[in-house]
Structures are given as C-alpha cells and as structure tokens.
C-alpha cells in the first residue's frame, strides 16, 4: 500500500508537466494581452510595450514556459499581475473560503445523498422511491446558478434566514457563526451532486440486492434492515466511493459559478476574474493547485477502494 502510494505520487510529476504545458498554451490562445488590460484604455502603445517587456511577455512562448517552470520548481509561482502580490498568497486568501465551502458541500452530499439513496432503494417501487427519485432527477437537472438565485430569493430576501453574499473569515468578528454565509452556497453546490449520489446509491443497491450472497444473508434470518445496510449497502459503497472522485471534479467547475452567484472570495471566482484580467501567473498557479488536488483525491479514492473491496489489490 505504501509502495503503491509512493508510485502514484511519482506519477503526479509527468501529469503535472503535461497539464502545465496545456494550460500555458491555452492561456496564450486567448486574445487580449495583460499589459493593455492592466493599463486601461488611456495607455499609450509605448507604455503597453514597456510593461509587456517588463512582464517578459515579449519573449518566445517556450522561453516564458521554461522560466515559469524553473521558478515553480523553486517554489515560486510568480507574482500576480493584477494584485502585485505573490500568486501563492493570492491563492492562500481564497483557500479558506474554498476549503470550508467544499467541506460543507461534501457534508451535505453525504448527509442527504447516502441515507436518501438507501431509503429509495429499500422502498424501491413505492411512492417514497418515486418521490425521492423524482426529486433527485429534478435537482440533478437544475443549473446551479438558477438554484443559487432561488435559494437567495427565498431564504435571504424572503425569509431573511441567511445572508445572501460574501464571506467574512471565521477568524474575523463572529467567528464560527460566519459559517452561516456558506450555508446557501454549499447547499447549492451540494444539490446536483447529492442527487447523483442518491441515484447511484439506489441503482447500485438494487444491483447488489439481486446478487446471490444477499439471498444467503436473508437465509441466515437477519433483519431486513441489517441485510440492507451490512450486506447490500456495504457492497454498493464500492461503486459510490469511486463516484466521489468525479464529484470532486464537478465541484471544482460548479464552484466557479456558485462563488460568483454568492460573491464569495473563493478560488473559483479568483480563476474567473483572473481570466478576465489576463492575470496569467494566477491562472497557471490555481490550475496547478487544482490538478494536484484532483490527483490526490483520486489517489485517496483508489486507496479507499482497496479498503472497501478485498478483491482489489494495489500494485
């Protein structure tokens, strides 16, 4: 297991290289250059040219890439063109919001997705199942920005239960109570993903419940609830665990929209704004961080997989 983990971490390196080259090339395909965006409409061509030279953007693209890469290898992700701050600290500022948002979202996904999925599978074919499956279908199809806006409309504007936007740090005044700013955004993010987990738990449990070993479990005289959890769900969990890797990928892209709708100072919104500002170092830095996270999460999923299914051996 340890050898496997080390091997997988080493395999990160070529993937990261490939990802960074792709990102570097794609960014330079986007029309518009950072110097003129930074200096605004009133800038003279001479100013723009000077700034371009200062930022090293007049160099051939492969030279720019190698320079950036050698800096990254020394732990320097560069300096934000817009904030005039190191990229690492810009990302750090957004990290608190994003990490808390992702944690709360995962909490909702597990809290709603798994029990409702189990309920739906055990009540399979009844009105309970039809209600939950229908609801899951609805939430899986609704776009996150629409759901976010409606939650704001109902719970912030209408009922006034939760704030509609922003997020002061938990280290500011209010402390942990500031987490209430994240309730609506995390619910928005969780809804489509929890819906997918509900459907997946239901489908895999129904698959497993047709297997022979479930009949063996019933023949032992076990209570149906024990058969459902200990035998059916436990086996269905193998497929569900694999889905959490994909869920994370979905969260990253949906977080961009949700953080924008709720004006959260997270990494998702940072990416969007940095793209608009052509803040190349920040975009590259953030995407590098997301790729690393994504690969670590997938490694964790594979390790969990081996824990859940004794037939899987990691080599």
């Amino acid at each position: 297991m340890l050898v496997y983990t080390i091997k997988r971490l080493l395999a990160l390196i070529p993937t990261l290289l490939a990802a960074s080259i792709l990102v570097f090339l794609f960014i330079h395909l986007i029309p518009g250059d950072p110097a003129s965006i930074l200096l605004g409409d009133t800038a003279t061509p001479e100013d723009v040219a000077a700034l371009t030279r200062e930022m090293g953007l007049d160099q051939p693209i492969w030279k720019q890439y190698l320079l950036w890469l050698s800096n990254v290898l020394q732990g320097d992700l560069g300096t934000s063109v817009f904030f005039r701050e190191p990229v690492l600290s810009v990302i750090g500022d957004g990290a608190e919001t994003s990490i808390l948002l992702a944690t709360m979202t995962m909490f909702w996904i597990v809290l709603f997705g798994i029990p409702i999925g189990i309920l739906s599978a055990t009540k399979h074919g009844t009105w309970v199942d039809q209600m939950t499956s229908g609801g899951a279908m609805l939430f899986a199809s609704v776009p996150t920005f629409w759901l976010g806006l409606y939650l704001i409309l109902i719970f912030s504007v209408g009922l006034g239960w939760f704030p509609s936007s922003g997020f002061p740090s938990v280290s500011d005044d209010g402390g942990l109570a500031n987490l209430r700013y994240l309730i609506l955004p995390s619910l928005t993010l969780a809804a489509p993903n929890a819906a997918l987990i509900i459907r997946l738990v239901r489908a895999s449990m129904l698959d497993v419940s047709r297997e022979d070993h479930v009949r063996t479990a019933r023949a032992k005289g076990l209570h149906p609830a024990k058969v459902a959890i200990k035998h059916v769900f436990r086996n269905a969990l193998i497929a569900v665990a694999a889905a959490f890797g994909f869920t994370f990928a979905a969260l990253v892209s949906e977080a961009v929209v949700t953080e924008t709708v709720f004006s959260l100072p997270g990494i998702g919104r940072l990416v969007v704004q940095s793209i608009l500002r052509r803040d190349y170092p920040v975009i590259q830095g953030v995407i590098l961080v997301i790729v690393v996270l994504y690969m670590i999460i997938n490694l964790l999923v594979d390790l969990a997989y081996a824990r859940l299914d004794p037939r899987v051996s990691l080599k």
């Binding site: 022979d212 070993h213 009949r215 023949a219 299914d309």
Partner: peptide, 24 residues
C-alpha cells in the same frame, strides 16, 4: 417468527458457491 427459524432450525445451501458468499 419466520426469521427466528431461518438459519437456526432450518438452513439452506445454494447452487452457486462462487457468488453465494459476500465478497467483502
């Protein structure tokens, strides 16, 4: 009451030994 008998006073073995045991 049925469950109290199943697996206790009455037990069953099945055709497919390869799939009749829980793999996990």
């Amino acid at each position: 009451d049925r469950r109290a008998i199943m697996g206790d006073q009455m037990a069953m073995i099945f055709q497919e030994p390869m799939t009749s045991l829980n793999p996990v």
